[in-house]
Write a protein that binds this DNA or RNA. Structure first.
Lengths: 233, 233
DNA sequence: GGCCAATCGAACCGATCGGTTCGAAATGAT
DNA sequence: ATCATTTCGAACCGATCGGTTCGATTGGCC
């Protein structure tokens, strides 16, 4: 069995091979089969972590033959990386267009904050982060890259805040620091609770809204332009 | 070889056994030997995580015989738990008395925040947290318990803030939320950077001070009692 | 120095690991 | 129905795992 049909692991989904007919792929080139493997692997990796997840476990969970897994992926680590990259891409896609430049500052922060915290406390994301943290020593680049995805949202937020500083509705000396502060306030500790397991379920919508409301209140108290006719406090 | 001398793993250090002379302990009862094992185990567990750390690795690193390890600890998991509990106790001991009740609010928050962030970004703590997170699925109680230690600092902070609300220097509707907000601001994202590896070294003192200064600025803007003769902004 | 017991270190055990091999079964195209 | 190829699933390989055993060595006490 040749491994010639193996795809580049960094690609999420391959384009259809012109040499293979529409309904049948070269060995290792079927996107549905690949997805099936990664799905099964994800469930086992997130349940057991990288080291304790065995390829026999993954074979059973994915419902494919072990030989087939090795047609699609070079080794266990390769499979893990593919899974992590897929999860990261999904997280980013969900948050890509939350902030709109022509938004009112409080409305924008509210929508961004709620969406951000909802995703950050979602079972899938929390599990993914834990799993990735478990391999930090052996795959430090992967771990850092996984986190750099969500971290890029800071740049998005920074651009948003910069616009509003220029428009005069915010007054911020250090936009870098302020962006981080809003993200920290928006996390509302819930992320840490979820990560460490002291909060077994994602917080309900009202709790998320309460935390984001509080975050905006604190943030605007510090950085909002003072209104002379109706004080913020 | 009987395991009769095995100590309760939940004890950090045993009292000297009256049945054993001062210079010689019953099998499994020597605190120095126990410490030697836990030290070696800690280095391996934090480097490799629980699953990938082998008892042979730990044997070599600790410089004891594998048989001796099993005299002191029931199994690998028992050893891991002992190590984690020891690290947790050390973290808590370092932070126990940072907030003093008769402190000025901003001075108190500054000292608490700096100390808190210094510890939270320390290599030892970050490694310990990552390692514990790696076993969250198999030992959820241990993981939650490890985090509950630092989380108890929230209660300490809450008591401090309550005193200052009653003294009139703070105005806070929701003290629970405000406590969490200060802790989140004080973490300053550095904790997450450190955890995920995008910040390889602990931040320098000036950076920590900058972040805590910003945290206090934002916090006091929202909750400090307004002064009519010298505005905060 | 002798005695006793803790520790050492090598060997062992059954089990599992990641990865490989290959004939049989399944599947899609013609 | 036939053919070509992908996938299956069982067996295999060398290596390592956690935990156990036991004669030899070491060290403290008398």
């Amino acid at each position: 069995m040749m491994k010639k049909g193996k795809m580049d692991s960094s690609k999420t989904l391959p384009v259809t091979e012109t040499s293979a007919p529409a309904g049948r792929f070269a060995a290792g080139a079927d996107p549905a089969k690949r997805e099936q493997i990664v799905d099964g692997a994800k469930r086992v990796f997130m349940q057991k972590g990288f080291d304790a997840a065995s390829m026999n476990d993954i074979t059973r969970e994915a419902g494919v033959s072990k030989g087939t897994i090795y047609v699609y992926f070079d080794n266990k680590e390769d499979l893990f990386i593919a899974m992590v990259e897929r999860e990261r891409a999904a997280f980013l896609a969900a948050l890509r267009t939350v902030l709109k430049d022509n938004e009112n500052v409080e409305t924008g922060l509210r929508e961004f904050g709620i969406k951000f915290l909802e995703h950050l406390t979602d079972e899938k994301i929390v599990n993914a982060m834990r799993t990735v943290l478990g391999v930090r020593e052996r795959m430090p680049d992967l771990c850092a890259r996984f986190f750099r995805g969500p971290q890029n949202l800071r740049t998005v937020l920074k651009d948003f805040l910069t616009l509003h500083v220029e428009a005069g509705s915010l007054e911020i000396d250090d936009i870098e620091l302020a962006s981080g502060q809003f993200l920290d306030l928006a996390s509302g500790s819930f992320f840490k609770f979820r990560l460490f397991g002291t909060m077994p379920e994602a917080p309900p919508r009202e709790e998320i809204e309460r935390v984001i409301r509080g975050a905006i209140h604190v943030f605007m108290a510090a950085y909002g332009q003072k209104k002379t006719n109706s004080p913020a406090e």
